[in-house]
Design a protein around this nucleic acid. Structure first.
Length: 250
DNA sequence: GTTGAGCGTT
């Protein structure tokens, strides 16, 4: 998705990607292109955006053709106020083509440039101040939005005790576009259907959720709370009528 | 209509 109209990265053979952070959520690649193009030949400008909302994630990747121009852009545009926000320009490292950065002179030059030109940036000491939390704003909105949509059929009486401390942290997913497909369970596919021999558990009514996990679905943050809830407001703690008979196949 | 640590697409 380059604003060049080409599909995917144009040519990443000898390009140097710069990571532009702290840009506004309104800033688009078209806004950054003329900015970075003035300091060098910009091959491509790409802004990772949310695949659902389509909003910018607050950072962009500017791909330069030459490293020296990229460095110049880093030195010039790093700390530049764009759209009312001070952007941070630095060399991308975790990109798909981070190898050339590691083997090339880009790494040492970048650190050298940053060491002498960071005095003009009134930004906070270091990036440690932001380490405390990584994501909450847009992810939180999207998460609640999706959660409220899918669980709309669920009564709101679940606020009594549902282990709120575990669903609060869902690990780190940049894109919670669709981590788990619940539709597959609701469709014609059966969890025990992956085995040709149905010697697993012939009980079609209530199978222990222990063996029910095919191993591929780690997204069970809502499972504990998604269990059957009594109309009175008390969750059915025992999914199976006999707790000691957890293993039906045994 | 918001938000603000970070690392990317066909």
């Amino acid at each position: 998705m380059s604003h060049f109209g080409k599909s995917g990265p144009p040519d990443i053979r000898d390009t140097y990607s710069l990571l532009v952070l702290n840009i506004t959520f309104r800033t688009t690649a078209d806004d950054l292109f003329p900015l970075f193009d003035k300091y060098g030949k910009v091959v491509d400008v790409f802004i990772p955006r949310n695949r659902r909302t389509g909003e910018s994630r607050g950072f962009a990747f500017v791909r330069y053709k030459y490293a020296d121009e990229a460095q110049k852009a880093v030195d010039k545009l790093d700390g530049r106020v764009v759209d009312g926000r001070e952007i941070m320009v630095q060399f991308a490292k975790y990109g798909p083509n981070a190898e050339r950065i590691h083997k090339g002179k880009t790494s040492e030059t970048s650190s050298k440039m940053r060491g002498r030109s960071r005095s003009h940036s009134p930004r906070p000491r270091d990036r440690d101040y932001r380490k405390r939390s990584r994501s909450r704003s847009r992810d939180r909105h999207d998460r609640e939005k999706y959660r409220g949509r899918e669980r709309d059929h669920r009564p709101r009486s679940m606020s009594h005790s549902a282990s709120p401390d575990r669903h609060k942290y869902r690990g780190r997913e940049r894109y919670d576009e669709e981590p788990c497909s619940w539709s597959r369970s609701y469709g014609s596919a059966s969890p025990a259907r992956h085995s040709p021999s149905s010697k697993r558990s012939p009980s079609p009514h209530r199978t222990p959720n222990r063996s029910e996990s095919p191993g591929g679905r780690n997204c069970n943050e809502s499972s504990p709370a998604l269990k059957s809830v009594s109309p009175r407001g008390q969750p059915a703690l025992s999914p199976s009528p006999s707790p000691h008979r957890s293993r039906v196949d045994d």
